[in-house]
């Protein structure tokens, strides 16, 4: 653990974010308004929840590619439990989230019991869960949820979008766990040296299974919020969201090889990407140009961070 290097990356990101905000605000007078920023918070919640759990997973040197498919599967199950099985909606939500968490558990079991590399295992379940979602839904969507359900994805609490509260509370709890608990330090230890962790008596397998379950859980909560936001379920929901989440995590300074990363960094990375997407669009840049610029920023941020690390910490 090198706190100084971590501090550097996040400070650098925060400065970058500030510069981006100033430039974008200067480009479009509609960007830096409370209404727009809150709305952006609403739009980034689903990716944010997944990215927070993904930070833990990547910090152990793993990866979870199946989150987008879990999101789609949970969305479909929510609709099926509610409409076809006839459960009351709150119960259907709980059941669907439980199913998504089980999907995460299944990931964890494949990875730990059968020693399949996380990349391969979750690539397989990415196809598996999406296939399940499509098979169960039969290309039909479920609509017409009761009005109270939309509060979650379209409503506000104390003037702030409902789901943004969930994201902020989730981020706070996650960063405390990762930074200040023994469990969080276990995550870093596994990422730094799995063999050494095992010999030190850390519960490597249990921790990993719990992480993939948490990742499935986060994707499930994101699914419920997503369904509430768009007021329908479709089997293709969340396609590609895993890449958005991984981008935010990596931009936030988490090492793809494990052992390094913070929730705060992920959160700043997330805000940076969302601000770029929104601000460039408001400044009149088209979708394809925005994607290119985000790619360039990602490379730049990681290059500069590497330079800092080399000159600073050794």
């Amino acid at each position: 653990m090198n706190y100084r290097a971590l501090l550097r990356h996040e400070t650098f990101l925060a400065v970058l974010l500030a510069i981006v905000l100033v430039v974008l605000a200067w480009q479009s007078d509609r960007f830096f308004t409370v209404a727009n920023l809150l709305n952006q918070g609403r739009l980034m919640t689903e990716i944010g929840l997944i990215a927070i759990a993904m930070t833990f997973v990547i910090a152990t040197g793993g990866i979870d590619l199946s989150v987008g498919s879990i999101l789609g599967l949970v969305a479909i199950l929510l609709g099926v439990f509610w409409q076809n099985v006839g459960l009351p909606l709150p119960l259907a939500i709980v059941a669907a989230i439980a199913a998504g968490t089980l999907a995460g558990l299944f990931n964890g079991l494949i990875i730990t019991r059968f020693k399949v590399p996380p990349l391969i295992a979750t690539l397989a379940t990415l196809a598996l869960y999406r296939g399940l979602a499509e098979g169960i839904s039969q290309a039909r969507s479920v609509r017409g949820y009761p009005e109270w359900f939309y509060v979650l994805g379209q409503g506000e609490v104390l003037g702030i979008p409902t789901q943004l509260w969930i994201l902020l509370i989730g981020a706070l709890i996650a960063s405390i766990i990762l930074a200040y608990t023994r469990w969080g330090r276990t995550v870093y230890a596994i990422g730094s040296n799995e063999v050494a962790s095992r010999f030190s008596g850390l519960q490597v397998e249990k921790t990993k299974i719990a992480l993939y379950m948490a990742s499935g859980f986060a994707a499930s909560v994101a699914a419920v919020i997503f369904v509430s936001r768009v007021s329908t379920t479709r089997s293709d929901m969340g396609t590609g969201i895993e890449l958005d989440a991984i981008t935010a995590v990596v931009l936030g300074g988490t090492s793809i090889f494990g052992g390094r990363g913070t929730v705060l960094g992920t959160f700043i990375g997330l805000c940076l990407i969302q601000a770029l997407k929104n601000g460039l669009s408001l400044a009149g840049v088209k979708g394809d140009g925005t994607i290119m610029l985000i790619g360039a920023v990602l490379i730049l941020a990681i290059l500069i961070s590497n330079v800092f690390e080399r000159s600073g910490s050794r």
Binding site: N39, N278, L282
Partner: peptide, 14 residues
Amino acid sequence: IDDQITLIDNYITS
């Protein structure tokens, strides 16, 4: 669907 919704949302703001 999500990309399209986000895009429209941005244009509403603009």
